[in-house]
Simulated assay, not measured.
Amino acid sequence: MNDWRIYRGAGLPHDGIRRLPPPPPWRDFAATAPDAGAATDPSAARRLGVLRRLVENHHPRPEEVEAVNAALYLRRPLLVTGNPGTGKSTLAHAVAHELGLGRVLRWPIVSRSTLRDGLYHYDAIARLQDVQLERAGGDGGERRSIGSYVRLGPLGTALLPAEQPRVLLVDELDKSDLDLPNDLLNALEEGEFHLPELERIADREPEVEVLTDDGGRAVIQGGRVRCTTFPLIVLTSNGERDFPAALLRRCIQLDLKPPGEEQLTAMVRAHLGDDAVTDGDALIQRFLDREPGEVIAADQLLNALFLTQHAPRTERVTRDRLAEMLMQPLDRPR
């Protein structure tokens, strides 16, 4: 391909979109790993590499392995901090893949997130509307169970009784408001929560079937959920705020360092194959030689390697300009 550009800025319509190559593996939302089963998280293939080489060939640092094992042994959450792109979220998927713990439950935190969002959602409005429709229809049909209007959140699903622990990723906890870290304390300490809407009718309906966060169904007894096996909860933070001591006391803390040469090479192989390691040696070295304290995420390097593969090798200026655009330090003032 002599011209790698799809959009040319000429203003004349054309069918260049037909030449758009397949997406980068980490942005391919239709692909799954060759060994993926029905219970596999679809995003695991994107995060770990379609060929799974990242978890099979990547050797994490001893402190990372020790922290994960401490969390498993002590049944405590794992609080992982580090710069963006250091693999904090990927760690949860890597553990779930190696230990065969199924798809990862994910709770992405935003400024409006509350503990209730993580535990369950009760759609009282939908229930009221259905009751009104039934009364207006006057057909005397069987009324839907209250469980049809209850859906457990990712944390609520992780706390369901199970023989093996589920893996829950609570992503970017530092994005939450000031109350959420403290609100989490009781659920993390006791491993249980209650649903008042179901407790009020427990004498009439002691068992209620509800939806779970991953699309399944679970039976809630007496309006309470209590885990039998504490889940592996991975809390991630970019270090943008401090957490209360009460939360830190309940967590195993891990500060994830940026990937070194061995981890970086494994990551590139997992997503782009062996040729990318050889062809992109200069960019990989540029990433490793960045200034101390300069924040460049590993996925920025992957983006640069992927895109420069499509630019003709004869256009060295274009390739360098693309790499410069995609690998700008995240902490550089704009």
Rank of each mutant, 00 (worst) to 15 (best):
E189F: 11
T228Q: 14
L322H: 01
R313C: 08
A297Y: 05
L133S: 15
A136S: 14
H58R: 13
A44Q: 09
G239N: 04
A246N: 01
A218W: 01
N303K: 14
L155C: 04
G87Y: 03
L283Y: 07
P181D: 00
A33M: 14
C227Y: 12
H59W: 05
L301A: 05
M1R: 07
T86R: 00
D139W: 10
G153Q: 05
P231L: 09
R249N: 05
L198I: 04
R144A: 08
A323S: 06
N186G: 11
A30I: 05
V131I: 15
A124H: 15
L20V: 12
R313S: 14
L160V: 10
R106G: 02
L184W: 10
Y73H: 13
R47I: 07
I252M: 06
V55D: 09
L12R: 15
T278R: 13
T318H: 10
C251I: 12
R316P: 03
S113Q: 08
P34H: 03
L128R: 13
P258V: 01
R249F: 01
D3Q: 04
G280E: 02
S111N: 14
R204D: 14
G137P: 03
R319Y: 06
W4K: 07
G37S: 04
H310F: 13
A276F: 03
T114S: 10
L51H: 12
G11K: 13
P333V: 04
V219M: 13
L272C: 02
W4D: 01
G140V: 08
L91W: 05
R5N: 07
D203Q: 14
V68A: 09
P333T: 07
G87S: 03
L247P: 00
P25M: 10
R18D: 12
L248G: 06
V170A: 03
N57W: 15
D274W: 05
V268K: 00
A245E: 11
L256I: 02
A276S: 06
R313T: 11
Q132A: 14
L307W: 15
P22C: 07
A298P: 00
R5A: 11
E56A: 14
G223P: 01
E240P: 00
H194P: 08
P206K: 07
S111P: 05
L119T: 04
G9P: 05
E324K: 13
G102R: 04
D281R: 15
G191T: 10
L180K: 01
R61T: 08
D41P: 12
K175F: 00
R250K: 06
P60T: 00
R135K: 13
G16K: 10
R116C: 11
P292T: 01
C227D: 09
Y149K: 08
P259E: 07
K257T: 13
L119V: 06
A70G: 04
A162I: 01
V210D: 00
T265C: 02
L128M: 12
G280V: 02
L248Q: 08
L322Y: 03
E190A: 10
L128I: 11
E315W: 10
A323F: 01
D139T: 14
Q309G: 11
W107H: 03
R334M: 13
D242L: 11
T236I: 00
V65A: 11
P181H: 04
D320F: 04
P84A: 04
W107G: 02
L78D: 08
P244N: 05
D203C: 09
